[in-house]
């Protein structure tokens, strides 16, 4: 049954979500700083025995095809890159939320994580292949987190899919899925996600992406290029067949991205291909190493 959420209830929902682990939280803080050094990441991972073990499992999984067993965490992190360390830390710390079945969108368990991972890879590639002057690793992290609000409102959207699609298809006042969510339960997934971002004390740039990834023109100008990169990454993930159920492809693409990001059709096709290849490898490495997601 579809249930309206009020502000008070939204706060309750957010409070019920477990906090990120201290190391995941700290990792997001460190890596959001454009002047940070990889050494800071290494030092942080070293303080967390569980995370260290996970990272070593991933690098030694078949997907990376290492000739020799890697036992040094320094080497593992240098090889894998920050983005994979962050994926592991988030997956460990909030795996339940990301792995949740989104029944309100008719998406299976694990679909949200797959969509997020693909949006993350795509956002990173958009930055890298368009030569945008922002951190590729931050674009990845932001992509990973952008849709977290869906896990919060999905239960309240239970049974709403036919109505949501009908709202979108009506001719006089066509909605996108965001507007449909808002009409049906009172909040859309970006608003709900933003509340969680505040509760988790995420860095501003990540909170801004979560809040405005469907309306990048409304984002704080300081972070707008990053928000546009994730906006495109999100759309690329959906185009590639990895949405989160009923809402897939049912959003507006803001053509204003051209003021920040130069993309030719050819580059976009290259990005889509890279996303497919990178995703396969990442998924394999996580599943080989016993990551739940």
């Amino acid at each position: 049954m579809v249930t309206q959420i009020n502000q008070q209830e939204l706060q309750k929902i957010v409070k019920a979500v477990p906090m990120l682990s201290p190391s995941a939280s700290r990792l997001l803080q460190i890596t959001a700083n454009p002047d940070h050094d990889l050494v800071e990441v290494v030092n942080l991972v070293k303080t967390d025995a569980n995370l260290t073990a996970r990272v070593l499992k991933v690098i030694n999984s078949a997907a990376f095809g290492m000739a020799n067993q890697i036992t040094s965490i320094d080497r593992a992190i240098a090889y894998l890159g920050e983005r994979i360390i962050i994926s592991i830390a988030i997956g460990d710390s909030a795996g339940k939320l990301f792995g949740k079945e989104l029944s309100g969108y008719e998406a299976a368990g694990g679909d949200l994580w797959k969509h997020d991972l693909r949006a993350a890879i795509a956002a990173r590639e958009v930055v890298a292949q368009s030569g945008l002057d922002i951190s590729t690793e931050l674009a990845f992290t932001a992509g990973l987190l952008h849709d977290i609000g869906k896990a919060l409102i999905s239960d309240y959207l239970q049974g709403s899919v036919t109505e949501a699609v009908a709202l979108i298809s009506q001719e006089e006042q066509p909605h996108d899925y965001l507007a449909a969510e808002k009409k049906l339960v009172g909040f859309d997934h970006t608003e709900a996600g933003y509340e969680l971002a505040k509760a988790w004390q995420l860095p501003d740039e990540l909170a801004e992406v979560i809040r405005y990834h469907h309306e990048p023109a409304r984002a704080n100008e300081e972070y707008r290029a990053l928000v546009y990169a994730v906006h495109l990454g999100d759309n690329i993930a959906m185009m590639g067949g990895f949405g989160t159920g009923a809402d897939s492809m049912r959003y507006k693409l803001d053509p204003g991205y051209v003021n920040y990001i130069k993309l030719s059709p050819n580059t976009l096709e290259n990005i889509m291909l890279t996303v497919d290849m990178e995703f396969e490898k990442l998924e394999e490495s996580f599943s080989d190493s016993g990551e739940k997601n």
């Binding site: 996108d176 759309n235 959906m238 185009m239 492809m249 049912r250 959003y251 507006k252 693409l253 053509p255 051209v258 993309l263 030719s264 059709p265 976009l268």
Partner: peptide
């Protein structure tokens, strides 16, 4: 296609 006015996508 996503709701887009730009040909690239």
């Amino acid at each position: 296609n996503v709701m887009d006015t730009n040909d690239t996508f």
